[in-house]
Design a protein around this nucleic acid. Sequence first.
DNA 1: GTTGAGCGTT
Length: 179
Amino acid sequence: DARLMSHQRSDNANPDPNTCLGVFGLSLYTTERDLREVFSRYGPLAGVNVVYDQRTGRSRGFAFVYYERIDDAKEAMERANGMELDGRRIRVDYSITKRPHTPTPGIYMGRPTHNGGGGSSSSSGGGGRRRDSYNDRGYDRYDRYDEYDYRYSRRRSPSPYYSRYRSRSRSRSYSPRRY
DNA sequence: GTTGAGCGTT
């Protein structure tokens, strides 16, 4: 099939050039500051994010480095890939994902359809909001959340356990006075 | 101060 060779599609092995680089194989002790020092050689950075394990709080051994210019990202990719950092051979590539996922609200994601006119609401909910191929490629689902109405995400009153715990520790902190 | 495949939250 000749068409297979015709144009190269970006997949996980061949991400498209991007201002966001994924850096893998890091030492657990490599910090964002360390990464800044190294990667800012190739151009001004827009940000650095080491990915931490949520439970332990320690580095998961990879990070994302954001450049302001793609050309700098490209150069950094070529020069820093395979370099040794804190005793580890690091792998640098264009990131396939662009951002941390926005924490899932766990609730209704639609917009309230406050139709002022009050007519017959026929096709408001369903399928109309397809964007483009953006979402398919792991680009931001982010913006969608920006339009999100946070009134619906507000939590209910704090759990009874919390208040009990509070009052107990509170009362404990009152040290009984001696005479 | 574990390693080591791996694309994401504080």
